[in-house]
Amino acid sequence: MLFAAETWVAVAFLIFVGILAYFGVHRTVLNAIDERGRKIEGELAEAKRLREEAQAIVADYKAKQAAAEKEAVEIVAAAKADAERLATEAKTKVEDFVARRTKMAEAKIAQAEAQAVAEVRSAAADVATAAAGSVLADIAKGAGGSDLIKAGIAEVKAKLN
């Protein structure tokens, strides 16, 4: 059993471990592991700091977004109010315009009616004058006309005296 393979493997392993311990390889490995642990702790601290910064930035942007949404709502409300005011003003102006146009049209119609009535009266007066002249001319012709002229002259003399 002294020459069994497993025995020689165990002896070789113990010699290898002894050599490693003699040269202090275990301290080098432990120092490397400790250094790696410190490096990981630094990276974790940096990651935590970056996460906190990111959360602060997100909170800031959420606040800005809320403010922008509020401002947008205010702008929309102001625009609606302006639109309603402008619509009311436009309606008032249109109503005033229509009223003025209606009054102008009524005035023109009244003026046209008055002018037509005046023209009809003038035409009627002209026709009546022409008819009266024609009737008087017929009456003045002949013997009855001479008597009328004599009676008119006598009446004028009587009034003048």
Results as ranks from 00 to 15, higher is better:
residue 82 D to T: 03
residue 140 A to K: 15
residue 42 G to E: 05
residue 38 R to N: 06
residue 150 K to C: 02
residue 92 T to G: 15
residue 74 E to T: 09
residue 97 F to E: 15
residue 74 E to I: 00
residue 117 V to T: 13
residue 48 K to Q: 10
residue 95 E to R: 07
residue 52 E to Y: 05
residue 138 D to A: 14
residue 17 V to F: 00
residue 71 E to T: 01
residue 75 I to V: 15
residue 150 K to E: 07
residue 74 E to A: 14
residue 76 V to P: 08
residue 155 E to F: 03
residue 108 K to Y: 10
residue 37 G to I: 00
residue 140 A to C: 12
residue 54 A to L: 12
residue 143 A to V: 09
residue 25 V to C: 12
residue 118 A to R: 08
residue 102 T to R: 09
residue 2 L to E: 15
residue 30 L to Q: 15
residue 22 Y to H: 13
residue 6 E to F: 04
residue 116 A to V: 06
residue 109 I to R: 14
residue 36 R to W: 05
residue 110 A to V: 03
residue 10 A to F: 04
residue 140 A to I: 11
residue 92 T to Q: 15
residue 45 A to H: 04
residue 113 E to W: 04
residue 99 A to G: 04
residue 52 E to K: 02
residue 82 D to W: 00
residue 68 A to S: 06
residue 83 A to L: 12
residue 16 F to P: 04
residue 36 R to I: 07
residue 52 E to G: 02
residue 11 V to W: 04
residue 120 V to Y: 03
residue 22 Y to T: 11
residue 158 A to L: 12
residue 53 E to L: 05
residue 41 E to R: 08
residue 142 G to N: 00
residue 36 R to C: 08
residue 118 A to Y: 05
residue 36 R to H: 11
residue 115 Q to P: 03
residue 103 K to T: 02
residue 133 G to I: 05
residue 113 E to C: 02
residue 38 R to C: 05
residue 14 L to G: 02
residue 120 V to L: 11
residue 53 E to N: 02
residue 9 V to D: 13
residue 70 K to D: 15
residue 74 E to N: 14
residue 136 L to I: 10
residue 33 I to G: 04
residue 91 K to M: 07
residue 139 I to N: 06
residue 44 L to F: 12
residue 103 K to Y: 04
residue 14 L to V: 08
residue 119 E to Q: 07
residue 59 A to L: 10
residue 63 A to E: 10
residue 23 F to N: 08
residue 32 A to C: 09
residue 103 K to D: 12
residue 141 K to D: 13
residue 121 R to T: 03
residue 83 A to N: 00
residue 1 M to N: 07
residue 97 F to P: 01
residue 37 G to Q: 03
residue 65 Q to M: 14
residue 122 S to G: 13
residue 25 V to Y: 11
residue 72 A to F: 10
residue 130 A to E: 07
residue 103 K to I: 00
residue 109 I to C: 13
residue 161 N to Q: 14
residue 71 E to N: 11
residue 107 A to V: 06
residue 39 K to R: 12
residue 130 A to Q: 02
residue 131 A to I: 01
residue 112 A to G: 03
residue 82 D to E: 11
residue 51 R to V: 11
